[in-house]
């Protein structure tokens, strides 16, 4: 299970960082979303991975799973959800006002080359 979770986090992060470095806003937004998914899973696993254990300490159970990272993940999900909405609206506004969806502006300076790189 550790391998599965770790490789999932790695894959999500790699894809997120790749998309973040793209020139147009939509892939960048997707990249941010993937990155926030990776971080949610990562934060969750920081309380150590445990299966079938309650998040409370009592005498009936041998172990417990750490509830704090779960609370943190909830907060992080809410914040990243809201932030994604904000960035989508702002990207849309930038596109509508300037007629270009490039993050770095000034696409007119580009001479040939592959578009969107």
């Amino acid at each position: 299970m550790e391998f599965l979770v770790a490789s999932a986090v790695g894959l999500l992060t790699a894809a997120g960082v790749f998309l973040l470095l793209r020139a147009r806003t939509f892939p960048v937004v997707l990249g941010l979303t993937l990155l926030s998914y990776a971080i949610n899973v990562f934060l969750f696993s920081m309380g150590r991975l445990a299966v079938n254990l309650p998040p409370v300490i009592n005498d009936l159970n041998k172990g417990y799973t750490d509830p704090l990272p779960q609370a943190l993940v909830l907060t992080a999900i809410v914040i990243s959800f809201g932030m994604t909405a904000v960035i989508v609206v702002m990207a849309l506004r930038a596109y509508l006002e300037s007629g270009s969806d490039h993050v770095d502006a000034m696409p007119e300076r580009r001479s040939g080359g592959k578009d969107g790189q």
Binding site: L20, T25, V28, L32, L35, S36, I39, F42, L43, M46, G47, L68, P69, L72, A76, I79, S80, M83, V86, I87, M90, A91, R93, A94, E97, S98, V103, D104, A105
Partner: peptide, 26 residues
């Protein structure tokens, strides 16, 4: 607005790194 988009993106990446760091320290 374009400068604002860049500002939001860089800070969202910053926040992501913040969470990773907090997770590691915890």
């Amino acid at each position: 607005v374009r400068a604002g988009v860049q500002y939001v993106i860089i800070n969202l990446v910053g926040s992501s790194l913040f969470l990773i760091a907090v997770g590691l320290i915890y």
